[in-house]
Design a binder for these strands. Sequence first.
DNA 1: CTGAAAGCGCTAACAG
DNA 2: CTGTTAGCGCTTTCAG
Lengths: 328, 328
Amino acid sequence: MNVRRTTIKDVAEAAGVGVATVSRVLSGGSASPETRERVLNAATQLDYRPSALGRNLRQRRSGGIGLLVPDITDSFYGRLADGVLACARSAGEPVVLGTTGDDAEREAEQIGMLLEQGVERVVAVPAGNAEIWEPTLRTGLTMVFAHRPVTARDDVPAVLADDRAGVRTAVDYLTGLGHRRIAYLGGPGQGQRVAAFRQSVGALLDEELIVFARGSRDSAYAAAAGLFQHRPDLTAVLAGGNQLGEAAVLAARELDLRVPKDLSLVMFDDVPWAELCSPPLTVIAQPAQDIGYRAAELVLRAGARRPRGVLLPTELIVRGSCGPRRTP
Amino acid sequence: MNVRRTTIKDVAEAAGVGVATVSRVLSGGSASPETRERVLNAATQLDYRPSALGRNLRQRRSGGIGLLVPDITDSFYGRLADGVLACARSAGEPVVLGTTGDDAEREAEQIGMLLEQGVERVVAVPAGNAEIWEPTLRTGLTMVFAHRPVTARDDVPAVLADDRAGVRTAVDYLTGLGHRRIAYLGGPGQGQRVAAFRQSVGALLDEELIVFARGSRDSAYAAAAGLFQHRPDLTAVLAGGNQLGEAAVLAARELDLRVPKDLSLVMFDDVPWAELCSPPLTVIAQPAQDIGYRAAELVLRAGARRPRGVLLPTELIVRGSCGPRRTP
DNA sequence: CTGAAAGCGCTAACAG
DNA sequence: CTGTTAGCGCTTTCAG
């Protein structure tokens, strides 16, 4: 089927030089101008494409960067992936994508697969904790965490949105509108945000108003509906992601809660449909694509300098889903 | 940095057999039960992970499947990718993802990269035409097109949604409501759908009511707004994708067109926010994930049988964005 | 500056 | 059934 691609050897023969010389020229090594031209000509003539296979084996590592996200279906991770792809493309590196479903076991399995492929640079939205990551990090691969850190692994660079500030801004906005019973609807791995939430609400803290969903849409809906039913006294909710926000809108609608009259809603992550929603959703925008791009940048530049992670700003975008506390 | 991973040779020594035997056992070849056990034990003991690098070079092809989509940020392609990933995972194959931006040149560049990586099986949502694809297909890689075919390349299997039926159903629905001036708002590579649209509207056909956007959200908005302004007499529009639908909703809102009172809207692709929209959008649902899964299946099984492509059903989901023709 | 040669880890003949 | 051997295409000493 395959007509044997031209190899470095063919080029060497055609140019009347040794394979080593071809290799050098093609990877920018030193060579006399004359030789260089002969090689380049031959290569062009033969339409030579160096095979990554040979190089990879020789160097005991595949180029390319691995990308692990919980769910490529989620707009946020889609944009994050897009950022990684953009950066990788400008570096000419392939990207191997895997999804973890926010499951530590599946994550480990994917890491194993990447390692088997010789991928030694990976950007991941981590699902597991420090203990889970321990063995992986010991393998010596170059890791960069994106979107959330692994607690107690500050030695691994992470590219994050400033969740703390985002949460605080949102909570301040809500309390400023008079809200006192503010709920947090969270997803997996949101330790940072929840901590920030607890801190931001301060004396208003009510642990019952903090609920979590697992990764799925169903779980998100169940959590939202459960929350609204059990605590009809709450007047505002902060959703920790676009799927959670979606669930909140749906659950509120189902329970005949008017947004923003009965319930004020702020959603983490600005998605295109936030504006189409009725009412348009007030959101905390996160630079998903930048997160991916910067993470990829770090993982590619690693080795040069030891990078220290990045914190990117969030922005509260006020639209129509928040109002003053309803007065009973 | 890397402590030299254990190789097949190490396992062979530990088990007191030759490397070939280890290779055989590990790839399910024949071996005496006793030998097999010794090898397996040694492998476990040493925590041996076969390196794909060596295998790939030897077999002159990397396993793994390439996936090319226009925009991973688009919910539809996100779901399609998810399907591909699901299938690949169950086959233990890595997926190399690339985006084309619906640009033939960029697509060719990505293909080049995949080839260089030794990837010989790719699922793509094609951007280029038959002429563009010609050289690529001659390289002998295993291709499966997803979501749309390349005209005049029926020799390449394609996994498609039944656009023809989807369009017809939508148009029938709209005409049934009394609409006579129905527009089609299309994106890149929608030859099939437009043809189906032309056929479905029959005598109602008005070429001015067929407009196209390029890939971007901006372009989609511009196309929608332009259409609505130039032809205020239209009463219904069929949007050829979720970004186009989004643009249509936005543009309609901007121009104070009430949906569905002034304008009925049907959107290709059911997305989560279609239900959150106000009014909820009537859509033609496409099995995006299935498309991806089936395509991956085909590309993996190819070689066994010569596959003939798949047509998956679409479904009209009536919600609230269509009404009877407004009577002036 | 350049070429010859030695593998990287694995699989696939080919003998035994 | 099993071991030996010859590379896959490339990079990288090491001499010349």
